[in-house]
Every structure is written in C-alpha cells, then in structure tokens.
Amino acid sequence: MGIEKENYGVTKEGKQVTKYTLTNGQGASVSFLDYGAVIQSIIVPDKDGKLEDVVLGYDTLSGYESNVPSFGSPVGRCANRISNACFVLNGKEYPLDNNDATNCLHGGFLRYNYLMYDAECAISQDDASVSFSRVSPDGEQGFPGNLTLTITYTWNDANELMIEYNAVSDADTILNITNHSYFNIGCGGQAAGDVLGAQVQIASAKYTPINEKRLPTGEICDVAGTAMDFREFHDIGSRIGEDDANAQTVSGYDHNYILPGNPGEICYAAAVRDPESRRIVEVFTDMPGVQLYTAKELVEQGGKGGITYGNFGGLCFETQQYPNGINEPKFPSPILKAGETFESTTVFRFGIY
C-alpha cells in the first residue's frame, strides 16, 4: 500500500489544498481532497483488467468549489430533507436554510464539502487510510452544538473503501451524515454515459414514499409489485415509467429504502453491476436506510476530461438515517445527545462478477 500527497491548488480564500491518493497492491486507487473531504476518484479494473475512474467529479479545484451536485461529498450536518426548513429540539425551534422547495436539503447552502479539513494519514501492509477532521461550530447551518467530526477513509488490497464516521457534540443536536458519490461503473467509467442499463439490487422490502417535493410522507410501504422493488437485480431503467406503491409514476429514483439489519450491525445493503464492464459495487452499512438516487435531472458541465454529465449520468447509494426523521415521530430519531459519540461505518466493495 502507498499514499501519495500532491498540491491540488489554492482556494478562493487562499487555503492550500492537498490531494491524497491511496494505491493498493493491484494498482487500484482512491483519491481524496482535504477541501471538503471529498472522494475525488476511485480507479478500479473492469473484466479485462482495465483501470478506470468510476466516480463523477472534476479535474480542478474550481470544480469542487462550485460542485452543485455534491460529487464525492460527505453530507451533513443533516443529510437529505428537513420539512419546512426547521425543527424543534428541547422545546426550541431552529430555522434552517430553505434551499429545496420548502425544505432544507443536505444542510443548506453552506455544505460540508465547501469547508477545509485537517488530515492525518496511516498505512499498514494491507491497507491505508486518511482521516479528515473539523469542528462544526454551534450555529453553523443553523444547527445547535459544537460538533467534532472525523471521517476516515480506508482503502485495502481487496478493493474495499471503508468510510467511518465519528462525531460528538457538546449540546443536543441532530446528525445524519452520508456520502454523496455518484457511481458509473460502465465501460469508460465516469465517462460511460447514462446508468439506465446498470443493474441494481437493494436488500429491502420497504421504503418511505415521497410527495411532490421529494419529502417523505411519513408512511412506510412495501416494494412488492411496484417499480420500487429491487430485491432482485434488474436494470435501473426497466421500471421507470411504472407506478410505485401509491400509484405514482416513477420518473427516476430518489427514495429511501429501509434496511433490515440490527442497530450497529454492518450488513449488505445494495449493489450495482454493469453487464458490459462486469464491474460490481457492493454496499455494506450499519445505517437504517439507504437512498437510491439516479440523478434524473443531472446536467453538469466541466466534469473530468471536460465532459458534460447528463441525465442519469451516475447513481448514489446514500447510507443514512430516514429523511426528515426529526419531524416524523414514526421514524428513527436522528438526535445526538450532548457528550454521546456517534459512530457509523459504510463499506463500498469493488469487484468483478
């Protein structure tokens, strides 16, 4: 295993940014930036051993300073949507940024991927890691409490990327942290075009339906007999245009699936595979949900290699708490009590099938 550091540019505020590349014994690698703690690349082989980058992103720092789609980004303090851009905690109302219809999405306008992190590297015979840390001060994004957050990325010789989250707050707050990488594992990797022909499986029989604002209705529905059913592998595009459990036509996926694992137990959650490249990405997590997002409205110029990413140009598996959990009493609570430590792990395993 090896870790390479290189200068990646200077932010608009004059901060030097470093790129960290971890390369394993097979020549597969992952790269991260201390600007935003983003995953900048994941380079893994196809069936013929050809190494290609399979996550969407940018070649330059200026791209990540804009990064409206949140390519490769850790998302917090509270990922996904919060209704009416506010919540009540301990009897006090906290207004948030209204940046998504009437919702607060992914923490608002000041997202975690627009901030600098301290970095610490570690290396062993079988793996290497980079830990990115920062303190989110009380009131940042509108959330209470000084939150100390560490995100540790570990890459090993089995082509597994492990993401470990560790957080503690000095006051009661809410926390829903995830990663928003967009995967395209087809021939050509991130430049392969749309992902509608990729095949997805999700280990879930239930999901949380959404309304016209993509906000959970508070219900929990069965996937059986609907376009939401990914219990068996099938093409992403094959059921678009069919109905979900509420007889609403599915034009793309931006839905939270309920995972069957026990709290704190890392279990298989989902996978995507490509019939041509024969790549597969398997997802394991201890979180209670995973958001499948297929980017049906993605149009982003200036991607890697100068390409423009189009509709359905990638997909995300966002391991998470249920969206809007703070405002839905039937959902698991995202409240993190003062002094308590939040820990969670998600693993992306890259292979050939």
Rank of each mutant, 00 (worst) to 15 (best):
I307P: 01
S66G: 10
G237E: 10
G76R: 06
A245D: 03
P332D: 13
F350D: 03
D48G: 14
R214V: 04
V195E: 01
N103L: 03
T178M: 09
C316Q: 03
C221R: 13
P69E: 07
I177L: 15
N324V: 08
R278D: 06
V88L: 06
N246L: 15
N262Q: 11
N211W: 01
P209N: 09
G237A: 13
E297K: 13
G225P: 14
L315E: 02
Y253D: 05
Q141S: 15
S333Q: 10
E212P: 00
C104D: 11
I240K: 04
R279I: 03
R273V: 05
S133P: 01
R279Y: 01
L161S: 04
I151F: 02
A28C: 14
S73K: 00
I326D: 06
N166A: 14
R279K: 08
A79W: 04
F233K: 12
R134T: 14
I202Y: 03
S29K: 15
G351D: 14
A122D: 14
G76Q: 06
L161K: 01
G264C: 14
D157N: 14
G197L: 09
K337C: 09
Y322S: 07
L51V: 07
D97K: 11
A191L: 15
L149A: 09
E52H: 09
G193V: 12
T152F: 00
P323I: 07
G289W: 00
D254T: 04
R239F: 12
R134L: 10
G36E: 02
H180K: 13
N324A: 10
A271I: 03
T346G: 06
V195N: 08
D243P: 04
G49H: 13
G261V: 03
F342S: 11
T102G: 06
T308Y: 07
K47D: 13
T346E: 01
M228N: 09
M287R: 15
D48A: 15
A191I: 03
P45M: 11
T178C: 12
G107H: 08
G107V: 08
F183R: 08
Y207M: 05
V250F: 02
A269P: 10
K304W: 02
G108D: 06
M228Q: 13
T217A: 00
T11R: 06
Y309T: 06
T346I: 06
V88Q: 12
H106A: 07
S73Q: 02
L259Y: 00
T102S: 11
V54A: 02
P329L: 08
L161P: 03
F230V: 09
T150V: 12
G351L: 00
G139Q: 10
G302D: 05
S29P: 06
F342L: 14
S73N: 00
P260S: 07
C104V: 07
R278M: 11
G218T: 02
N184C: 15
L259F: 04
L298F: 11
Q320N: 09
C121K: 13
S204Y: 01
N256C: 15
E164I: 01
K337V: 00
G189L: 01
T173K: 00
K15N: 10
Y257Q: 10
F317K: 05
S62L: 05
T178W: 06
N90S: 14
S251G: 09
E4L: 08
F312Q: 03
N7F: 11
N166V: 15
Y117H: 08
P332R: 12
E52M: 13
I82R: 06
G237I: 12
A119V: 11
V88I: 11
Q141W: 00
L149E: 13
G25R: 15
G218R: 04
A205H: 12
